[in-house]
Design a protein around this nucleic acid. Structure first.
Length: 863
RNA sequence: GCCCGAAUGGCGGAACUGGUAGACGCGCCGGACUCAAAAUCCGGUGGUGGUGACACCGUGUGGGUUCGAUUCCCUCUUCGGGCACCA
């Protein structure tokens, strides 16, 4: 064993060993319990960032830990390779997105390897390759057959400058993120997936998912948004007659309804606007949405009467119908009944347009006033001024109203969902083609299975003027599969969330070119541990749950929840430094280019740019990002200190679920610890092999170190295996190493006990810093590879102790420590506590009223 | 506005089931080694008072439950996250 710790050589050697021995090639082994550990796959943006390192280090540590516990492990990796950044890079550099993406993948793959992750690269998958995305298309066709996929006109954000469609996230304050142009709403035909068909099950099952964080389950539940209420109709004679249907959770307030309001997109609004140009203009304005930021902020309620009337379903009174900008077409029936007395929005609307306000719910003795809204106006209470419903409480009134309306065909109880169907059409080039052919005679025709995959050309270069597929005759031109005449291919591609909605299944059988999934899914799935960022708490995880349910429905899988346990790691933060330029722009500087010097006398610190020595301002600690220029390149870290230091720092600096603050000194500390570990083993080994441990002939000090070793082993096993608190596991091993450093190395048994302590330290750290521990294990005299060693069992005998230290309190305040024999009788503990001089002092002349004894821990004397 | 979560030394954090607050690391202070520096090693390090043993105070604020509260309950403050005209 060499004296110096040289990470580059050690890491290359360890990685070579795992490669050669295929240590991480997953095998379907029925004789062993499997463990499928999956980290969310990356978008190949170019380089790994610290968030990736954190994510994949957590996954790798768990995978290695489970492997040493005898599990048959699978830890795969792939690439979420379709998406917008590739198109933007293409516009900027005139390179096809395919080349840019594949180059990035090659680079990032090398980076992942240099970090030593135990990945099964045989199962690597890339979503922009036809071998993968053909199954998106295949399943889409199955969804069409089952009515889960359907075509509907939808509203999109249209950037008139780029002539392209933008995602909601790309619209900032009503303007395009690239062009700054005011975004228009356009209606175009799009394909939707009927996720709402599964809404109830997606919600209910959340209660039976103990392996998911409460936080994520709550977020999904809110997103799905179940509402119990009544759908009721206001009859009218407009056109051919009928009823205006609304949804309400407050059917008990129906006698207080004084108007109805419909969304701008509502059919009645259209009807009324036909001979009312002012109303038509207002409707147009609403459809465009709040263009001005001020309007968004105040959320001012605006409306206009349609001149139409409906009748109250119970009283028969005539009620005006308004168009209201606060009514959403996408929720319920796109219309509401206005009960101004008991709904804050209706109140504001009625005030503004001088509509009648009628109180119908008593307010627990408080006086109702028409002057101003009070928060308790919308509370539940008994009905008043409501005819037959007077005196009923909330639930009774809702039941009665629903029953009465049902009798006349104008209402029924109804559950409404906030969740909407998932529009997957993207008017974009770099995505999976939707397998549809448009025929002049047959309409939209699905591509037959045997013609799959519809291959996306990889040599196109978008120029910013819309989807280049629209100009690519090779792609466009096709015969209609039904009638054989010349037809055109659909040029829309699928939302990239489709790609990530099932990739975790494909890892089980990525090499199968005959079928989407096969028998191996049964062995590996569900994923035992899924790890990723909280930012995917809603969309990705909900879509994946939806796809799995659909696959179960068509018999492709046997389970409906794809991820048994979910772990959401915290973000990586760093300080941000900037200067304001004369023109008012903010210029950010990377922390690596800034020197911070603590002012010894003052309470602040000064940050200066290394390049010019002049001061920069500090903007606090925020998420690492390109825009703030405060990222740290993992590669620089690996090159300077090695992968183990990077891994150790990131696992030690914070609990994995919390945010992690970057610290250069912290990295130095991690490096220093590894060097100390190396030196401890080197010094130990330098004086030759240790004799076998003779457990029967140990001194008290030797027994104490053994106890410490096995306590540490027990703690690390629990911290990683159950609590997932890697930071405390590492701290425990640091303490053990401090203990070994202080331990004398005089006799043969001293060295034997130290050998055991070092072996435990090296083994327990190996999931986190696998390279250096691989070398140290060999250094400690083993010929086996550490990764193939079974995780050591705690020796219960080593944990035993003859005596125990107890705390003595007087009136709850710590006054003394006493040492008593293990299992000492209560009387003995009592006597020992009372005999302590300091305890005596605080009891003084007072009478002892009570003594509370927690065996082995504490005595509290109440005087 | 609604729903979650958090707040502990100079800093990151620990204390898992109500039982020794501040583990471990960083930083800082002192010392050793060195011509010197870096690296390394040893010691100290919540605040106040005291030469000292020790005492008092101390986990965002104010209250409560308890022999005992960082931990449980209520109030407020601040910060972070999610949703947001959802009828």
């Amino acid at each position: 064993m060499q004296e110096r710790y040289e990470p580059a050589a050690i890491e290359a050697e360890a990685q070579h060993y795992w490669d050669q021995h295929r240590s991480f090639e997953a095998k379907e082994d029925d004789s062993r319990a499997k463990y499928y550990c999956l980290c969310m796959f990356p978008y190949p943006s170019g380089r790994l960032h610290m968030g990736h390192v954190r994510n994949y280090t957590i996954g790798d540590a768990l995978t290695r830990f489970m492997r040493m516990h005898g599990r048959s492990v699978l830890q795969p990796m792939g690439w979420d390779a379709f998406g917008l950044p590739a198109e933007n890079a293409a516009i900027a550099n005139s390179v096809p997105p395919a080349k840019w993406t594949l180059d990035n993948i090659a680079h990032m793959k090398a980076q992942l390897k240099s970090l030593g992750y135990g990945l099964d690269w045989k199962r690597e998958l890339t979503t922009c390759r036809p071998e993968y995305y053909r199954w998106n298309q295949w399943l889409f066709l199955r969804m069409l057959e089952k009515g889960i996929a359907y075509l509907k006109t939808g509203v999109v954000n249209w950037d008139p400058v780029d002539k392209t469609v933008l995602a909601n996230e790309q619209v900032i304050d009503g303007k395009g993120w690239r062009t700054g142009a005011i975004i228009e709403k356009r209606e175009i035909p799009m394909y939707y997936l009927k996720i709402t068909a599964f809404a109830e099950d997606l919600l209910d099952e959340l209660n039976r998912m103990p392996g998911w964080p409460e936080r994520v389950r709550v977020m999904q539940a809110n997103w799905i948004g179940r509402s119990e209420g009544v759908r009721l109709g206001f009859p009218h004679d407009i056109g051919e007659g009928g009823a205006l249907w609304v949804f309400t959770t407050r059917a008990d307030t129906i006698m207080g309804a004084t108007f109805c309001a419909v969304a701008a997109e509502h059919r009645l609004a259209d009807v009324a606007a036909q001979d009312n140009p002012k109303l038509a203009a207002f409707i147009e304005e609403c459809k465009r949405g709040p263009a001005l930021e001020a309007e968004l902020a105040t959320q001012e309620k605006k409306g206009m009467p349609t001149g139409l009337n409906v009748r109250h379903p119970i009283s028969g009174e005539h009620m005006p119908v308004w168009v209201g900008n606060y009514v959403l077409m996408s929720y319920g029936d796109g219309a509401v009944m206005g009960v101004p007395a008991h709904d804050e929005r209706d109140f504001a609307f009625a005030k503004k347009y001088e509509l009648p306000i009628k109180q119908v719910i008593e307010c627990q003795g408080r006086a109702y006033s028409l002057a101003a809204w009070q928060p308790w106006y919308s509370d539940h209470g008994r009905c008043v001024n409501s005819g037959a419903y007077d005196g009923l409480d909330f639930q009774a009134a809702v039941d009665a109203v629903a029953r009465d309306l049902r009798a006349i065909g104008l209402g029924e109880k109804r559950t409404t969902w906030r969740l909407r169907d998932w529009g997957i059409s993207r008017q974009r080039y770099w995505g999976c083609p939707i397998p549809i052919i448009h025929c002049r005679d047959c309409g939209a025709v699905p591509v037959p299975d045997e013609q799959l995959p519809v291959i996306l050309p990889t040599d196109l270069v978008p120029d910013g003027s819309g989807n280049p597929l629209l100009k690519d005759e090779r792609f466009l031109s096709v015969k209609c599969p039904k009638c054989g005449v010349d037809a055109r291919r659909e040029t829309d591609t699928m939302d990239t969330f489709v790609d990530s909605s099932w990739y975790f299944l494909r890892f089980a059988c990525a090499d199968n070119n005959q079928a989407m999934l096969d028998y191996r899914v049964q062995y590996w799935l569900p994923v035992d541990q899924y790890i990723g960022g909280i930012e995917h708490a809603i969309l990705h995880l909900l879509y994946a749950r939806f796809w799995t349910r659909f696959l179960k429905e068509i018999g492709a899988v046997s389970f409906k929840e794809p991820f048994a346990r979910l772990f959401t790691q915290g973000m990586v933060l760093n300080e941000v430094f900037f200067r304001k330029t004369d023109s008012g722009r903010v210029q950010y500087f990377n922390p690596a280019d800034v020197r911070v010097s603590a002012e010894k006398s003052g309470n602040g610190s000064v940050a200066v740019l290394k390049a010019d020595g002049k001061e920069v301002e500090s903007g606090g600690v925020v998420t690492m990002s390109k825009s703030k220029n405060n990222g740290v390149d993992p590669q620089v870290l690996v090159d300077e200190f090695g992968a183990d230091t990077a891994r150790l720092f990131i696992m030690f600096a914070a609990p994995p679920e919390q945010t992690l603050e970057w610290s250069d000194e912290g990295v130095q500390g991690a490096f220093r610890f590894i060097k100390r570990l190396w030196k401890a083993v080197y010094d130990h080994v330098a004086s030759g092999p240790a004799a076998p441990l003779d457990k029967s002939a140990l001194t008290e000090a030797q027994r104490a170190l053994r106890r410490h070793s096995h306590q540490t082993l027990a703690k690390v096993t629990d911290d990683i295996g159950r609590r997932r608190t890697f930071n405390t596991a590492i701290a425990a091993v640091m303490e053990l190493l401090n203990g070994v450093a202080k331990f004398p190395q005089a006799g043969a048994q001293d060295r034997s006990v130290s050998q055991e302590a070092l072996e435990i330290a090296v083994m327990t750290l190996s999931p986190i810093i696998p390279h250096v521990t691989h070398a140290l294990w060999r250094g400690l005299g083993h010929v086996t590879a550490l990764i193939d060693e079974p995780w050591r069992e705690v020796d219960a005998e080593a944990l035993q102790s003859a005596s125990v230290q107890m705390v003595v309190q007087v009136n709850g305040k710590l006054r003394a420590h006493i040492t008593v024999a293990v299992g000492a009788v209560e009387a003995a503990v009592r006597a020992a506590a009372l005999a302590d001089p300091n305890v005596q002092k605080f009891i003084g002349v007072s009478a002892v009223r009570k003594m509370i004894i927690v065996p082995g821990k504490l005595v509290n004397i109440v005087v």
